[in-house]
C-alpha cells in the first residue's frame, strides 16, 4: 500500500489502526517502566541485619534512588520510640500480654541484639568497641543520615496491632506511613530492587 492510500474498509474494521496500536504499546511501556526506587522489607529486629539494611538504604539514597523501608514484625519492634528514657507502651490500647511482649522486647534501634554471638550483650559490646576503633558508623547515625537523604518509612499495620502499639510509639511517626502489604508491594513492584532483610 502506498502512503496516503486508504486501507480497504473490511481490513480497517478488523485490525486496529496504526495510531491505536502505537497508543496501546505506549500505555504498555508506561506500565512496565520502572522507577528509580529500592524497597527494603525490614523483618528482622537483629542489630546486624538492621545495620545491613540501613547501609544499603544509605547507599541507594546516595545514588539518587528513592528508598522505601517497610518495618514489619520484629523489624517494627526495633524502631520503637523512647520518650524521656522510657519506651512508649502503646497509649493504653495494649492488653497485659502485649504489655509483657513490649517489656521483653528490646527498646530503640540501638538496643537490638546481634543475630549471632550476642552472648547476653557481651558479643555486641565487644563488636561495638571494634567498630568504634575502626571508625565504622553506628546504627543511629546511619538512620539519621537516611532521614536526611529522604528515606521513606512504612510501618506494618498488622504488626502494630499485634504488639498493641499506635504509630506514635514508633520513630518518625510524623513522616512514616502505616500501611498494609498491598501498599508496600504496589511501591516495590514499580521499583528496581526489593530486599527482604
Amino acid at each position: 500500500m502506498r502512503p496516503g492510500e486508504q486501507p480497504a474498509a473490511g481490513a480497517a474494521s478488523r485490525e486496529p489502526t496504526l495510531e491505536a496500536r502505537v497508543a496501546g504499546l505506549e500505555r504498555e511501556l508506561q506500565a512496565q517502566r520502572r522507577e528509580d526506587s529500592v524497597s527494603i522489607i525490614c523483618f528482622s529486629g537483629d542489630w546486624d541485619r538492621l545495620y545491613a539494611a540501613f547501609t544499603i538504604a544509605n547507599g541507594a539514597l546516595a545514588l539518587g534512588q528513592e528508598v522505601n523501608m517497610f518495618f514489619t514484625f520484629w523489624g517494627a519492634t526495633a524502631v520503637r520510640r523512647k520518650v524521656d528514657g522510657a519506651v512508649r507502651r502503646g497509649d493504653g490500647r495494649s492488653d497485659w500480654r502485649q504489655r509483657m511482649l513490649g517489656w521483653m522486647l528490646p527498646s530503640g534501634i540501638d538496643r537490638a541484639p546481634l543475630s549471632k554471638l550476642h552472648l547476653c550483650g557481651l558479643g555486641k559490646w565487644m563488636m561495638g568497641l571494634v567498630m568504634r576503633q575502626k571508625n565504622l558508623d553506628n546504627l543511629p547515625d546511619l538512620m539519621a543520615d537516611a532521614r536526611e537523604l529522604g528515606v521513606n518509612f512504612y510501618y506494618c499495620d498488622s504488626s502494630l496491632s499485634l504488639f498493641g502499639w499506635c504509630p506514635e510509639d514508633l520513630m518518625d511517626a510524623d513522616r512514616a506511613k502505616c500501611c498494609g502489604v498491598s501498599t508496600f508491594l504496589g511501591k516495590s513492584l514499580k521499583g528496581r530492587i526489593a530486599l527482604f532483610i
Binding site: 547507599g59 546516595a62 543520615d145
Partner: peptide, 18 residues
C-alpha cells in the same frame, strides 16, 4: 579520611543536595 563505607558516599550525596 578515616571514614568507612558508606560514609564517604553519604557525604558526597549530602554535598550534592546542598
Amino acid at each position: 579520611r578515616g571514614m568507612k563505607c558508606p560514609r564517604p558516599i553519604i557525604e558526597l550525596a549530602k554535598a550534592k543536595r546542598r
